[in-house]
Simulated scan of single mutants.
Amino acid sequence: MAAVIPVALDPTHVRIALVGQGPLAKRRLAQLLEGGAAPAVYSPEPDAELIALAGIALRRALPAPADLEGVQVLFVVGIDDPAAEALARQARVRNILVNVEDVIPLCDFHAPSVIRRGDLLMTVSTGGRSPALAQVLRERLETLFPAVWADRLAELAALRDRLRATGAKGPEVLRACRDLIAAKGWLP
C-alpha cells in the first residue's frame, strides 16, 4: 500500500505550470482553471481548443529550465517520455512537485478524480494505480451528490456563521449542522 497524504491546494498561493498537449492536457487544464488556478501553459504543438483554453498563458514550446523558476507544482501531460523524464528531473532539482500523467515513478503526487458542487469538493484517488476505478467511483459520487449540494452547503455555512456569531462553539455547531442534515433528509 502506497503512503499518501491528501491535500487541497489554494491556487492563489501556489504557482502552477502545465506542460502538455492532447485531450488529457486539455482536461487537466480545464480542471486547474475550474479550481481557480491560472497556470503557465507550455505546449509545443497546441491544438485550437488548447489555444483557446490557455489564452494568454500559453507558450508554444517546452519550458526552458529558467521558465521553471518560481513554479511550485508542475503537471506534465501528453509529452513524449524522454521530454517528460527531463522535465521531471529539472523540476525535482528545483524542489518543484511534479506529476507526469500515468507515469507513477515520475510523480511526486497524484491528482485525484474530482467532484465539485460549489465549494463542496470530493475527490477519489487510487494513488495512480487505477485511474479507471477512480473515474467509475467519481461518476457514482456525481449521481449521489447532484448539483443541489452546492446550495445545501451554502445553507449549512449560513447556519454555521449564524451560530458562531452568537458565540456557539465547535460541538454545538457540529450538532446543529448534523441535525439540519438529518431534518432535511439529505443523506439516506
Rank of each mutant, 00 (worst) to 15 (best):
L74F: 11
V14Y: 07
L163Y: 11
R152M: 05
L159G: 14
L62A: 13
L24R: 08
G20I: 00
L141H: 03
L53Y: 04
L133P: 08
A183I: 02
R164M: 10
E142H: 05
I16A: 10
D80N: 09
L18M: 07
L33S: 13
I96T: 13
G55W: 03
R59P: 09
R140T: 12
R117F: 07
I181C: 07
D161V: 03
Q21F: 02
L74W: 07
P65D: 13
L187S: 09
W186I: 06
G127T: 07
T143C: 05
A176F: 03
V148L: 05
V71Y: 06
I181V: 15
A182N: 12
L144C: 09
M122C: 12
A147S: 13
T126R: 02
E139Y: 01
L97S: 14
I96W: 06
A40I: 02
T126L: 03
F109L: 05
R59I: 10
R94M: 05
Q72H: 12
Y42E: 07
R15E: 15
I96A: 12
A134F: 03
A182L: 07
A66M: 05
A158Y: 04
E155S: 14
D80W: 00
G20H: 04
S113P: 03
Q21I: 03
C107P: 09
R28M: 05
V93H: 14
G170A: 10
A57F: 01
W186R: 06
G167Y: 03
M122D: 08
Y42V: 08
F75K: 04
P65K: 03
A25T: 08
T123V: 12
